[in-house]
Amino acid sequence: MTIIFDGLAAGMLLFLISVGLSVTLGLMNFVNLAHGAFAMLGGYVCALLLARAGVPFLLAAPAGAIVAALAGVVLERTLYRRLYGASHLDQVLFSIGINFMAISAAHYFFGAQQQAIVLPDFLRGQIKLPGLDVGVYRLFLIVIGLTLALGLQWLVGSTRFGAQLRAAVDNPRAARGLGINVERIFTLTFALGSGLAGLGGALGIEMLGLDPSFPLKYIVSFLIVVAVGGSGNIKGSLIASLMLGLFDVAGKYYLPQAGAFVIYVVMVVMLIARPQGLFGRSAAK
């Protein structure tokens, strides 16, 4: 039971970070390998606010998200925008470049050491239930993850903004013809994706750690989630994250010698079985 619970919490954390990538990669069709860099930015903002300015955690984490979102707006306006029409290969190379710069910059400003944070008291400790020890922070992550998943599903699926976004992605020219400000929608969406990354990065410090190598260390997991979940699909990302979290934790528990091998096997098998992802929009494009 504890394994399942920990797996769910790990999966939820994965979801928190990768749902942002699901927005940029999935909805906007931009292979943004620099996603981890935004997550790292959010994490550093949160860690510094906590440690140096004594800002409470519940404010510092959203602050991380906001800074990451602002950075997203700036980069989108100046650089990313030029590459919307480019091939996936160009986008990959470009965002790897951004990643390398972010890693060096983090190194320069914050040093190579791990950033540690102290969680507030009410998020620490465990709740004892019969047969199950529930870490409070993990429960907190699961609640936040579910809330975000529902919120995003609603935002993309049922609001005017969501409808405009889907229109802008599927056919930018027609959307422009209908008077939708496609550029603005894309900027906002990119900011949303980066902000979610920042939030995930801030919430993830406790479990994943935070050091300058963060963007490359975890990018593989984020990409797996999006690729397996099917692009542009929040429900798919959620289920894929939870599955990967479960497989990863269970794999490490039952087969420690196999290590991370398990999730790669799961990914490749899933991609072979469903190249479009679990809930891919196979008919689109």
Binding site: H88, Q257, Y264, V268, L271, I272
Partner: peptide
């Protein structure tokens, strides 16, 4: 050969990571 660019990226990456983990363990 299956799938789009993104799937190819992920499958090639996945195969390489599996070998890496295998050699590591």
């Amino acid at each position: 050969l299956r799938g789009s660019d993104l799937t190819r990226l992920m499958v090639t990456l996945g195969v390489a990571m599996m070998l890496y983990e295998a050699a590591n363990k």
